[in-house]
Design a protein around this nucleic acid. Sequence first.
DNA 1: CATAACCTTAAAGTTCACTTTAAGGTTATG
DNA 2: CATAACCTTAAAGTGAACTTTAAGGTTATG
Lengths: 133, 133
Amino acid sequence: MKTFNIGELSEKSGVASHAIRFYERENLMPEPARTQSNYRRYPEDAIARLQFIIHAKQWGFTLDEIRELLMLQDANGDRAEAKRIAREQLEKIRHQIQSLSRIEAVLSKTLEECSGEGPMDGCPIVEAIAQER
Amino acid sequence: MKTFNIGELSEKSGVASHAIRFYERENLMPEPARTQSNYRRYPEDAIARLQFIIHAKQWGFTLDEIRELLMLQDANGDRAEAKRIAREQLEKIRHQIQSLSRIEAVLSKTLEECSGEGPMDGCPIVEAIAQER
DNA sequence: CATAACCTTAAAGTTCACTTTAAGGTTATG
DNA sequence: CATAACCTTAAAGTGAACTTTAAGGTTATG
């Protein structure tokens, strides 16, 4: 099986070498084997693990949550736990969508109302922001 | 007209005293008058200004953007500028809603697929995150 | 008139997720 | 065999938006 230096792993995974070391310190990546000269040597599946991290980040998981998921995987832990983490994440995302949608509605309505001409005094945008609600 | 110490303003506006001083350093709040003993003395409209900042933050504006809006107001500047800032903000919010909605769809589908029972090995949630897409 | 509850400043700490810098040691290339 | 291109560590820096701490000075209360 092939093994990689940190630079090669960085290229293959799209994660900067320093970020990989950072993930190691943060217990997201396991400590890899070392060469005689103390260089990190990674097995091939390190690529998949980094890509898991990247995707989980895109899904809005924090590094703390990702660490939890990875620890469950490493321990071949309980699926119910993973489901709980994912469900909490879904809840968070739905909340975000809701509050952003409310803002979107008010902001787009306000923008329609504002001619974009004249001085700030009485500008509907400013007044909408100043509004209590 | 009434004037306030920073603590009273903090209470009335719901913004911590230290945050108010921070906003002053960041040019979001004007330098207020001082008493003989160098205490800040705020006029009543400082409350409205802080509430404007709070609401604009809730709308997702950064402090940089809020500073811009406040400067436009202070200068009684051009409404077209304010509209541009608000339009950019609307664009950002729409983008966020779109990507969150995509994530919501995949995540909720994945959660339905996962029984929540058994070991992690083969868990659809983990596999969905690991997936390239 | 002591002391609690305010106020002042400057500077450092917080969180997140890294990136950058400094000061080296190692390996590959011409 | 010089030198470029890697690798190592520890520590500091980044940015956003504050919060906390330190070390005081001032004002209100019993």
